[in-house]
Simulated assay, not measured.
Amino acid sequence: MTADEELLKEIRDGLAELADAAKAPAMQAYMKSAMPFRGVPKPQRSALLKQVMADHILPDRVTYSATVLELWRAAEYREERYAAIDLSGYRAYRQWQDPALLPVYEEMIVSGAWWDYVDELAIRRIGPILRADRAEVTPVMRAWTADANLWRRRTAIICQVGAKEDTDTDLLRDAIEPAIAEPEFFLRKGIGWALRDYAKTAPDWVRSFVDDHPALSGLSRREALKHIG
């Protein structure tokens, strides 16, 4: 696969021009990131990418996937990885959001291995693909519920955040239950978030789930019942 080097250069150069060395250390410290930041706040980054991506549309699926992965893999600054995520979801490439992209997103989830990357990919990339093609994607998410990798498991738990009436409650239950006994914060927080979000649509289901699972951590329980008592 061949990435579009011109687009990559425009993104990298644009981020370099917006860099603020005074802001970068605090951003890196907040995110507990080994990878340095350029110091580009999200509003400026989003404005840059919106313009660059609109002016430079990738011609086909192969070039699109290769460019996203090259931007991700070769990133020297965290904003470049944010840009890869933004590029992956740009509206011009909506027709390519299907199960064939799961390996791309899986690589980004596993190698990114932190909540700022994983949550966006889980909810805004994996989630819509799941809802559009349940037959192919649901078994993948079920496999991830028991995966040794923390971030695959978190993805399986939270990928239906925002699904509302389209939530597959069997999958939600099956994603949460194997993680209930885990002490890992990001699993406990993810459980609470997924339940809290679904409680907006089905509060009785969430109350019943919480009542039926007394082993839920205090964190998961508090988050789940936050708005329904």
Rank of each mutant, 00 (worst) to 15 (best):
V62D: 15
T63V: 15
A74K: 15
A74E: 15
A75M: 11
E76H: 13
Y77D: 00
R81A: 08
A83W: 09
A83V: 02
A83P: 10
L87W: 05
L87Q: 13
G89C: 07
Y90P: 00
R91L: 03
Y93K: 06
Y93D: 06
R94I: 05
Q97E: 12
Q97W: 06
D98F: 00
D98K: 13
L101Y: 08
L102H: 04
P103N: 06
P103G: 07
V104C: 14
V104W: 13
V104P: 14
V104T: 15
E106D: 14
I109D: 11
V110E: 14
S111G: 01
A113C: 03
A113P: 02
W114S: 03
W115M: 09
Y117W: 02
Y117E: 07
Y117Q: 03
Y117D: 10
D119Q: 05
D119G: 06
D119V: 04
D119F: 04
E120F: 04
L121K: 09
L121C: 09
R124I: 00
I126E: 04
I126K: 03
L130R: 07
A132L: 08
R134S: 09
R134A: 14
A135L: 08
A135C: 00
E136Q: 11
V137W: 00
V137D: 02
P139R: 12
P139I: 06
V140R: 08
R142D: 02
A143C: 02
A143F: 00
A143H: 05
A146H: 14
D147W: 04
A148S: 10
A148H: 08
A148E: 14
L150E: 14
W151K: 06
R152I: 02
R152N: 06
R154D: 02
A156V: 04
I157F: 03
I158M: 05
C159V: 13
G162W: 10
K164D: 13
E165H: 12
D166K: 12
T169N: 10
D170C: 06
D170T: 14
L171V: 01
R173G: 07
D174L: 11
I176N: 01
P178S: 08
A179Q: 15
I180N: 01
P183H: 01
P183V: 00
F185A: 05
F185W: 10
F186W: 14
R188G: 10
R188S: 12
I191A: 13
G192Q: 11
A194E: 08
L195A: 15
